[in-house]
C-alpha cells in the first residue's frame, strides 16, 4: 500500500482534515454521544474489516477499496485526535484567562 502512496496521499490529507474538523467541533458539540454499544459495534466492524484486509480475503478491486477505506479511516481518526486535543488546549487556555 505504501508503494502507491503517490496516488492517494491527497485523499488521505482530505480524510485527515475531515477528522481534524470533526475532532475540533466535537469538544464543544452538544449533540448525542455514540452509545457504548454503538462504539463496540463500530469497533467490531472495523476489527473485522482489518482482519479481512490483512488476510487478503477480499479479491480484486473491492479488496483495494477496503484497504483504502481503512487507511483513510485511520487518517480520519488521527485527524480527530489531533483536532480534539488542539481544541481542548485552546479552550482550556481561554478558560484560564477569563
Amino acid at each position: 500500500m505504501m508503494a502507491l502512496f503517490d496516488f492517494y496521499w491527497g485523499w488521505l490529507v482530505g480524510a485527515l482534515l475531515i477528522g481534524f474538523g470533526s475532532g475540533w467541533i466535537s469538544v464543544v458539540h452538544r449533540g448525542p454521544d455514540l452509545s457504548r454499544n454503538g462504539a463496540l459495534g463500530v469497533g467490531g466492524i472495523v476489527a473485522v474489516l482489518i482482519g479481512l484486509s490483512l488476510a487478503r480475503l477480499v479479491p480484486g478491486e473491492p479488496g483495494f477499496w477496503l484497504d483504502l477505506l481503512l487507511v483513510m479511516f485511520a487518517a480520519y481518526l488521527i485527524g480527530c485526535a489531533v483536532g480534539s486535543w488542539l481544541r481542548y488546549w485552546v479552550v482550556s487556555r481561554q478558560m484560564r484567562r477569563s
Binding site: I18, G19, G21, S22, G23, I25, S26, V27, H29, G31, D33, L34, G38, A39, V42, Y76, L77, C80, A81, S84, R87, Y88
Partner: peptide, 10 residues
Amino acid sequence: SSSGKWWPGV
C-alpha cells in the same frame, strides 16, 4: 470524552 462525538465526520 469527545471521541464519542467524532462519528458525524464519518
